[in-house]
Write a protein that binds this DNA or RNA. Structure first.
Lengths: 206, 206, 206, 206
DNA sequence: TATGAATGAGAGTTCATTCAT
DNA sequence: CATGAATGAACTCTCATTCAT
């Protein structure tokens, strides 16, 4: 739906046919593998095409430029992570502090898996920060957190809640990136500590 | 002194003479200004040389390659920030929680000033993460934090202390980066919240 | 009929069926519109096919290559202009100088309308200057002019006549191109001046 | 002097040193030879660099882009031709009609020598038609012709003179291009005819 | 030692043309 | 016959690095 508004970054054509979808998938998979295995400096269109087993021309048939490939990777990751967070935080069968704990653990683990290409993605991020898709994702995650805070701090003022939502999200995101660059074994301990720390802080805001 | 172990990144020659030091300073200053004013994509050796008022040849006389310039920038910044943190955290005239509060505020502000070239530096970071200078800096900041935690958590076990030091440092660092990418006006509020959050968490570890 | 001699440029198959003719027409029309509206750099086979509402494959079924499309455009234009000139110059109800005047005015106006794709056509012109169709057109226009000169200079020697025909044609053609690149409002004045100049010169040759 | 106003087309650096001038000369000479011998489609930066015996990088050190090379060629040619015309037309020791005759002969011959790369130059012309250098050249040639017409038509009104200058210049230029694409042997005859034709026309304007 | 001209590998991107479906 | 996805050679331009002067 955004192809009109942002042709410079969205897909060139929607791959509805099977073959096309395979190509796009192959490209994205190749892109991930290159980012993981060879680093962001090896992420060239020629290398992506080669690794995906397609020609450069085909690559450009579906992605208008290099940023678009990274953009697609980012978008897919945003959607996955967004869903993950939403599911964890809106599970009304648990108390808010427990939900936050679960969410943080899942999020940190998810971040770990994406760590290798995080950097490359971040380099390209300024380019699509202000795209419709980027804005949509931003609004979505903001709403999820705002709703959660409303439940966690039912008696707090709107200003307090707004700040808390912002702060909690920022803290989790920031630590997620950091934790993903560390040894895997530390992750769950860090997740637990982060949850404990944030839950403690939240309690004092309430 | 590290030139043997890592000739690819350390200075080609120690500039002991006045002229050489001037040159190195001019280069670093130019590098900072380019990163700040023109962005990392403008950070080319030719541009740095030009802005520093030296020839490309001279640039290469003191920096073996482009990464080395970024490396020097990083190192200098590490030292400044390290000193800042050390000063704030070891001020025995204040209670630990107050020291942490001050240190976080100073650190966040410092991070803000360096935000523009943070990204460029980070891109080059993997290249010198495991250099002697990098390790030295790492040990230094670790010790500062460990000493601080020893004072903040006098009764905790060594394992708890070690984890706390790691966690507190990671949290502050991670949030520092994030905060530096946000509007300036939020900074002190975030610093206060971060300090409050960490102090609360530390209290519960004690 | 020319497909043997110059298979690289003539039509791949004579489109005798209605459908085929429609396709060829659609392609040529699209080509003209692209050249006019988007400029010669937008004249790609993909764009032509798209604008013509046919597939690239179909395009290549009737035109062996890109030059062939331009060739057809040129040919069609030659025929139109040739007819125009012939009609104007062979109108025995008027004196030769009046015929020339009329012909030049019509020709300049016609050139103006084709100005936009003149350049693109000219780029491809060397490729088909020596094709049968090109030669045929050349002979045709030569004959028209020769006949006209025979009437305008009834007492001149064959050599004089031949040179005059060549010179008059060259002058008109050359000025036509130039005039078509100028503001429209100048055209008729230039046409009048050109006619006056050539009629004066012709009179002196007689 | 135009390097500030139009950095996209003028020389990147003024080649004051001997070596640099040699390089620029070698490039321009290579460019001419390619245009002459291999046609405009062979005019690629790589080919130019190769033929000039320099690297692509060096080429781009002196010419910011491909157009700039063509621009330089055009400029040099403009200057030569401009001087030629000026000299011929302002020679007060001859009558105007004789001067025009001489000038046209010289101009046609000169055009012949440049014919091969005329096309390539013309293709790039739109790109620098409105550059300072282009405008300057245009003003210069306009003035030369205006001055000449003032002498040739001393009693004519300013409007008549202005039109005459425009028309004469257009006719000569247009025919020059056309003539340069024809067999060499025709040139002088065409020059004589053109001069005769224009002198006749001018006499009638006076 | 200082200079900056020269290098050239390599990047992103386009587009005429083919051919499996 | 029609399609349009796939191809890949070719193009312009950049920039880290070297080396003759």
């Amino acid at each position: 739906m955004a192809s009109r508004e942002n042709p410079a970054i969205s897909l060139r054509k929607e791959p509805q046919q099977t073959r096309s979808r395979h190509l796009v998938d192959a490209v994205l998979e190749a892109a991930v593998r290159i980012l993981n295995d060879e680093g962001s400096h090896a992420f060239t269109m020629a290398r992506v095409a080669e690794k995906a087993g397609v020609s450069v021309g085909s690559l450009y048939q579906y992605f208008p430029n290099k940023q678009a490939v990274l953009f697609r990777l980012q978008t897919e990751e945003w959607q996955q992570t967004g869903t993950l967070i939403e599911t964890a935080l809106s599970d009304r069968s648990k108390r808010p502090d427990e939900r936050l704990r679960v969410m943080i653990r899942l999020f940190f683990r998810s971040e770990c898996e994406e760590a290798p290409f995080r950097r490359a993605l971040d380099e390209a991020l300024p380019l699509y920060r202000h795209t419709p898709e980027g804005e949509a994702q931003h609004r979505r995650s903001k709403k999820i957190m705002t709703d959660f805070i409303a439940e966690a701090l039912p008696h707090a003022s709107p200003v307090t809640r707004a700040f808390a939502a912002d702060f909690v999200k920022t803290t989790i995101t920031a630590l997620g990136v950091r934790v993903s660059e560390r040894p895997r074994k530390d992750i769950d301990a860090f997740a637990a500590a982060t949850a404990e720390m944030l839950n403690g802080w939240l309690k004092r805001q309430g």
